[in-house]
Design a protein around this nucleic acid. Structure first.
Length: 782
DNA sequence: AGAGCGTCGCTTTTT
DNA sequence: GCGACGCTCT
């Protein structure tokens, strides 16, 4: 082992091994050379990773020499936090641990000049990329009707992920569409370069370019990162694989962790070969299998195992647990999506009441984001506190994007996409025609749009009045640019955004919607100063990078006591005592697209596996016989995945969901129905087909519901009566301190109305006073 | 240039 | 069922 500090604390490092099982200890202890850790769900992977890093540190490895790459910000954050607990926050802070994209962005900023970028290059998200592609298509005269810009973006992204340049792409193009895509790809690349911007894929590709063309740069980073750790290795794509292996080449201390059964990002270019072939890449690799599950009950594991074993391709491993048998799985059979949502919420409610779960112990998972709508409605109807883990929405709002575009221009005026976005927002009289004139001039003179605008007199055929508008617009940016060095980012941003007139525009419109938008702008600025308080070295560039690469950026909901709603993709790496998976239907989960394609189907199945294994104690599955999709009512059969789970895993209690059931099969006792239903499932799985041959409407509505005690909740008791409280059963009273996600902290002044209509008046500390409908306002009592 | 109306595509998942 | 976008009219 490479020791930088003469050791006296080797012993101290070994104390970390206490309390780990033998495989875990081996994974922690084997610090040198290549290591592959195959970590089953719930096998203590994060623990092993953090202990391993702590072990390295305690063995005298300098924090600077460790690099940990994760897939999500969430994972990186958790890792840092937990290392902090083990070795102290100020040591942990120095470790480079982050997502591929953020770590690479950081490196690329330092090395930008090698690639012809400046260190304040802009990072384009998918929307920005699409916008740029539209511009390019317009420029090339390719109709957006014929080729969808979004599809082009996807194709270009795929090409980049498999490291195919536009030259190669064009060379291999057969069809007209591919040839045109090749052209667009080329122009798009040029446009990005001229805009001093990189898209998500470029953050990976440019790392490869950098290392290939500048061996001395690679050598320096290899010297720096002597211990590499890669989480979720099964989800890496070819480009990520390449960078990691280039970095690892010098010291070969590379430790990758993954679980092929949880590979769910194939669609994004993840290449499962990366993990399957690790032993081929490093023939001297130590392979450690973590197979003991500490998270879930036996029932849940059995269900997960039964599901995943239908996949042909997987590494062998057998997960086991010493945990108790646990409660059986509940299946909720519902008429439609609205009823499903209602039943899901009622079931959660009763579990909370009977098992002492609080809101933070519960997660509702689904396949598509669109499903959250019905569930949210139901949660609101029942006055239960929830939060959606997805986050993107805030940063997708127009006013927020505009604000960010303005900020980007401050640090990177070459960013033409941002100029186009905000040049006429608020209206400055610079419309389509004038913009085109400016762009033409830029193209013909080979200058950036911004440079052309700085020298607006050189543009021919521009109205005088409009030229003046351009000068004014440029003036706003230039004035604030000159203050970049002297003011703090948050102060500068505040004045600058004010000077653009954007917030005033919304404030003057004075409608509910426009005030909302105004508020969102303030939120961005507040967030910036918050981040600045956390990190005094924060620059505008790093802030912008942060929000470009963070999906669920605003996470004040983290740690708050609320039911979590999210896609199964977003749930990876998390765990909850009670998990509900909604929408277990053919065509939705698995998606229709996957029904034909075995590869896709296996990926869906892995996703289901991920979903199931998020549950610690209780699992509830639900499906609806019909639901609204694309605004249309669609009928569907229960998911084939349901029939892959052993009948024994499901709850035998056979109480019907509602009194209406007998009409479905009036002559049969209910428990026989359940029996029959399960047999049907079983035999259908034998046949290897979807099963559920009965028409949707006559599917026996059986085996359900946890406790007999709660039965009347499912009969005809008016829905809302019993739950007319705020979430978690807390009651709000005047004088209470509360927190609102948008308006911040405040004090409750008055309460009026009752039930659903309860309104609260809150005096917020930012001076505003608001009347809010309790059921809708997401207030946390402090 | 901007408002108003109609069409279209969207819903798979994320950095 | 919604939002983004494009077309037309003013």
């Amino acid at each position: 082992m490479l020791r930088l500090i003469p050791d006296t604390d080797g012993q101290q490092a070994d104390t970390l091994l206490e309390g780990l099982n033998p495989s875990q200890a081996q994974a922690v202890r084997t610090t040198d050379g290549p290591v592959l850790i195959i970590a089953g769900a719930g096998s203590g992977k994060t623990r092993v990773l953090t202990y391993r890093m702590a072990y390295l540190l305690r063995s005298g490895v300098h924090p600077d020499h460790i690099l940990a790459l994760t897939f999500t910000n969430k994972a990186a954050q958790e890792m840092k936090e937990r290392i902090g607990h083990l070795v102290g926050a100020n040591i942990a802070r120095n470790i480079w641990a982050g997502t591929f994209h953020s770590i690479f962005a950081r490196i690329l900023r330092k090395e930008a000049d090698h690639l012809g970028f400046t260190s304040s290059f802009t990072i384009y998200d998918t929307d920005d990329s699409t916008a740029a592609i539209k511009q390019v298509m317009g420029q090339l005269g390719i109709s957006q009707q014929v080729i969808a810009p979004n599809a082009v973006r996807g194709r270009i992204s795929n090409a980049k992920n498999s490291m195919m340049s536009w030259q190669e792409y064009a060379r291999n193009a057969d069809s007209i569409v591919e040839k045109q895509t090749g052209q667009i790809y080329e122009e798009y690349e040029k446009r990005l370069a001229q805009s001093n911007a990189m898209d998500f894929d470029d953050l990976l590709i440019n790392m490869i370019r950098l290392f290939e063309h500048h061996p001395q740069v690679l050598a320096a980073w290899q010297q720096r990162f002597r211990y590499l750790l890669v989480d979720e290795y099964q989800d890496t794509n070819r480009a990520q694989y390449k960078v990691v292996n280039m970095l690892a080449k010098a010291h070969r201390n590379i430790c990758v962790v993954g679980d092929d059964a949880q590979s769910i990002y194939r669609w994004r270019g993840a290449d499962i070969r990366n993990i399957l072939d690790f032993e081929r890449d490093y023939s001297d690799a130590t392979v450690v299998r973590l197979e003991q599950n500490y998270r879930s009950t036996k029932v849940i594991l059995a269900a997960a195992d039964a599901v995943i074993k239908n996949n042909a391709k997987q590494l062998k491993k057998s997960l086991w647990t010493e945990n108790p048998e646990g409660e059986k799985i509940t299946l909720l059979s519902c008429r439609d999506d609205r009823e499903e949502a209602d039943m899901v919420v009622r079931t959660i409610r009763s579990r909370m009441d009977n098992h002492g779960y609080s809101s933070r112990d519960v997660a509702i998972l689904y396949r598509t984001n669109a499903q959250s709508q019905a569930l949210e409605d139901a949660l609101r109807r029942h006055n239960m506190a929830y939060h959606i883990v997805s986050g993107v929405s805030f940063y997708k709002r127009k006013e927020v994007k505009d604000t960010i575009a303005y900020l980007r221009l401050l640090v990177n005026p070459s960013d033409s996409e941002s100029i186009i976005r905000v040049i006429n927002e608020p209206a400055r009289g610079i419309g389509q025609t004038s913009l085109e004139r400016l762009q033409e001039t830029a193209v013909t003179s080979g200058r950036t749009l911004y440079d052309v605008m700085l020298d607006v007199d050189s543009v021919v055929g521009l109205q005088k009045r409009i030229a003046q508008s351009v000068r004014d617009f440029i003036g706003i940016i230039e004035r604030s640019r000159s203050l970049l060095e002297t003011m703090s980012p948050s102060e500068l941003a505040k004045h600058y955004i004010e000077s653009t007139g954007l917030p005033q525009m919304y404030k003057l419109q004075d409608t509910d919607e426009s005030l909302d938008r105004w508020n969102n702008i303030e939120r961005v600025l507040d967030h910036l100063s918050e981040q600045e308080d956390l990190d005094p070295d924060l620059t505008l560039t790093t802030y912008l990078e942060q929000i470009a690469l963070v999906s669920e950026a605003d996470d004040p909901a983290l740690g708050s006591n609320r039911i979590a709603l999210m896609t199964m993709h977003a749930a990876k790496g998390l765990e909850f005592p009670l998990v509900v998976i909604a929408g277990m239907e053919q065509g939705l989960f698995p998606l229709a697209k996957a029904e034909q394609d075995i590869g896709e189907q296996e990926e869906e199945r892995r996703l289901f596996y991920v979903g199931i294994t998020r549950a610690r104690e209780q699992l509830v599955l639900s499906y609806a016989e019909r639901r609204y999709r694309f605004g249309e009512l669609v009928f569907s059969r229960p998911s084939m995945f349901l029939s892959e789970i052993d009948a024994d895993c499901f709850s035998a209690s056979s109480r019907p969901m509602r009194s209406a059931t007998p009409s479905a099969a009036p002559t049969q006792p209910l428990n026989q129905q359940a029996q029959q239903h399960r047999q049907q499932q079983y035999s259908s799985s034998q046949r290897g087909k979807g099963g559920y041959s009965s028409t949707p409407m006559s599917t026996p509505r059986a085996f359900n519901v946890p406790k007999p005690r709660s039965s009347n909740e499912y009969s005809q008791v008016p829905a809302d009566e019993s739950f007319s409280q705020t979430g978690e059963g807390t009651t709000i009273r005047p004088g209470d301190r509360v927190k609102h996600p948008m308006f911040g902290v405040g004090t409750v002044l008055t309460l009026s109305g009752s039930g659903q209509q309860t309104k609260v008046t809150v005096q917020f500390s930012n001076g505003t006073r608001k009347q809010l409908v309790l059921a809708y306002a997401r207030l946390d009592v402090l």
